[in-house]
Design a protein around this nucleic acid. Structure first.
Length: 203
DNA sequence: GGAGCGATGTCCT
DNA sequence: GGACATCGCTCCG
């Protein structure tokens, strides 16, 4: 039992050692927390995609290690943030032992704490529809103030990094497996994991 | 509520 | 030069 007011446990490096499909399932219903200007911005993870490094034509790591994707080949539990379509950032967490390049793409959160701040960061009114805050990989990065400059390569297993994942003991929901979104290669593999029926899942 | 499409920077061929 | 793990707007039902 958790003592009221005590900090919740942060997911450790060992949590991310497994293959990406396994970690993706475990990540659902955990809480992503961002420390922003002294405030907590938090959202429950409701949609994750798994990417298998060198064995996965859709993965950024597929063609081998480059300057951009180097984080994926490092130890598990680090943030890989990249810039896409000239205007959005996407957040991944590396998994598998060092040398392997699996990762998890965080695609949607159910916002839990700091909704007004998230709305401001998204350029929306404070009372905007919460579905517009963090439903989608680009949206959740904007809502949490995550950019490549500020977060690529940071350790998400450390509470001090300003971005980590907590386990609040929320009972896991039913998981649905779907094809991944927005890719051309290996588009048929069911590596998108969502909380079935959750309204904050993207699209 | 869904299809179509333009915006825009970076990476790798 | 082409592709890109997206988003928000328009237009049409």
């Amino acid at each position: 039992m958790t003592v009221r007011g005590a900090p919740l446990p942060v997911l450790s490096r060992a949590f991310y050692l497994d293959p990406p499909d396994v970690v993706a399932r475990k990540l659902l219903d955990k809480v992503l927390v961002r420390r922003y200007e002294g405030r907590r911005l938090a959202g429950r993870i409701v949609e994750v995609e798994a990417y298998f490094g060198l064995n996965d034509p859709a993965a950024h790591a597929f063609a081998g290690k480059t300057a951009r994707n180097a984080v994926l080949f490092g130890p598990p539990g680090f943030a890989y943030v990249y810039f896409i379509y000239g205007m959005h950032f996407c957040l991944n967490i590396s998994c598998e032992p060092e040398g392997q390049s699996g990762s998890l793409l965080l695609r949607a959160l159910e916002p839990v704490e700091g909704l007004a701040t998230m709305a401001r960061l998204r350029g929306l009114a404070p009372d905007a529809n919460p579905r517009l805050l963090t439903s989608g990989p680009g949206r959740l990065c904007e809502a949490l103030g995550i950019t490549r400059e500020t977060h690529n390569g940071i350790d998400v297993t450390s509470r001090r990094s300003g971005l980590h994942v907590e386990d609040d003991g929320f009972p896991p929901g039913n998981i649905a497996e779907l094809p991944r979104v927005g890719i051309r290669k290996a588009a048929d593999r069911p590596l998108r994991f969502v909380i079935a029926g959750n309204r904050f899942v993207s699209r």
